[in-house]
Design a protein around this nucleic acid. Structure first.
Length: 343
DNA sequence: ATGCATGAGTG
DNA sequence: ACTCATGCATA
């Protein structure tokens, strides 16, 4: 069972029954139905591959994702040794839905005790213009608004909040998870994401700012997030579960930020010690032709066996690991809200 | 905004 | 080995 499965089913007080059946994914199902004889893929020889590739390549120009595969192969990939790289910042991944309320200690880069400072020391605003209309939020949002409206200064991004406040916010976050229907509804998520983005921009805060500011909220188990994740939340390019898990947190931040925005204040101080350079990771780039081939393969078999991956890798002259990861990422991509939830 | 990558957790 | 949540690097 995967972590998220636990959350879906057990949801120990966190997100009771908020798992939408529609999202009950293809692969979870797939995993149940084994493919004894094997494989529509073991016979994937060069000829077949080429044909599939050609066909899929053509087909691909019409519509992106194809759901050609329904079965899973016997897994036989060997463990590949991934290359590592020295990173400057400590890895943070505390927001897995399952342990959101279980973790405690958090590292937090406190370079955002003041809004003004943060704005001058961090990434400049590079947001695209807001487009759509306002959406209305109900329920948990209002109740939380009430709970948190009595707040103080420190700037939208500040984390200097008294303990009593924290519990209030924690309660708010918890309360927000009390309305599964509403929080699980893709439409509600979409509406919130849109509203979140608009109000964030109105506050003059970048996606990166929000990510770092989250650590300052000091909610149990909630650390900082990257610009990437905030961006993905706003654009609904996260899994349904991920969206649901992040919503209450971002909602809490938004309320806090807006509350503090009201009691305007000024504060000049602001150190910003940005990290020093370690060896930077180099990003592999798969050329267009190879990418097209991969997509073609994927259309035929989204879950190729280790051997198939090796074969594909060799044919395309790519590292096996690169191919494997590509397929993993492609599968994840299929599950993103935008494509998974049809609305 | 998004592509390729890592690591934790699971089986 | 896989899924899932996330992130660095980059287009």
């Amino acid at each position: 069972m995967y972590p998220s499965d636990k959350m879906k089913m057990a949801a120990p007080g966190c997100f009771p029954g908020r798992y939408s059946p529609t999202y009950r994914g293809p692969d979870q199902m797939r995993r149940c139905m084994t493919n004894p004889s094997g494989d529509l893929f073991s016979g994937l020889n060069d000829g077949l591959l080429s044909r599939a590739e050609a066909l899929a390549a053509v087909d691909m120009q019409k519509h992106q994702s194809s759901h050609a595969a329904h079965q899973q192969m016997t897994q036989q990939l060997k463990h590949d040794v991934m290359y590592h790289h020295g990173m400057g910042a400590p890895p943070q991944r505390p927001l897995q839905a399952k342990n959101m309320f279980q973790m405690h200690g958090m590292e937090n880069l406190d370079l955002m005790s003041d809004p003004s400072s943060s704005m001058t020391t961090l990434t400049p605003m590079t947001e695209t213009p807001i487009t759509s209309s306002h959406h209305q939020l109900h329920g948990s949002y209002h109740s939380m608004n009430h709970m948190m409206s009595h707040h103080h200064h420190g700037g939208p991004l500040s984390g200097h909040t008294p303990g009593s406040h924290h519990s209030a916010m924690a309660a708010a976050v918890a309360a927000a998870s009390l309305h599964p229907d509403q929080d699980t509804d893709p439409r509600e998520l979409e509406a919130f994401a849109e509203r979140f983005k608009q109000r964030r921009i109105k506050l003059g805060v970048t996606q990166a700012d929000v990510g770092k500011a989250l650590a300052n909220l000091k909610l149990p188990g909630v650390g900082a997030l990257s610009q990437s994740t905030i961006c993905r939340f706003e654009s609904l390019t996260l899994s349904h579960n991920n969206m649901i898990a992040l919503k209450p947190i971002l909602q809490a931040w938004l309320e806090e930020a807006e509350a503090q925005a009201k009691n305007k204040r000024r504060d000049p101080d602001a150190p910003s010690v940005l990290p020093h350079g370690e060896k930077k990771r180099k990003r592999t780039s798969i050329a267009a032709p190879e990418k097209r081939s991969l997509e073609a393969y994927f259309a035929v078999q989204p879950r190729p066996s280790g051997e198939k991956i090796a074969a594909i890798a060799e044919k395309l002259d790519l590292k096996k690991n690169v191919v494997r990861v590509w397929f993993c990422n492609q599968r994840q991509k299929q599950k993103r809200m935008k494509f998974a939830a049809q609305h």
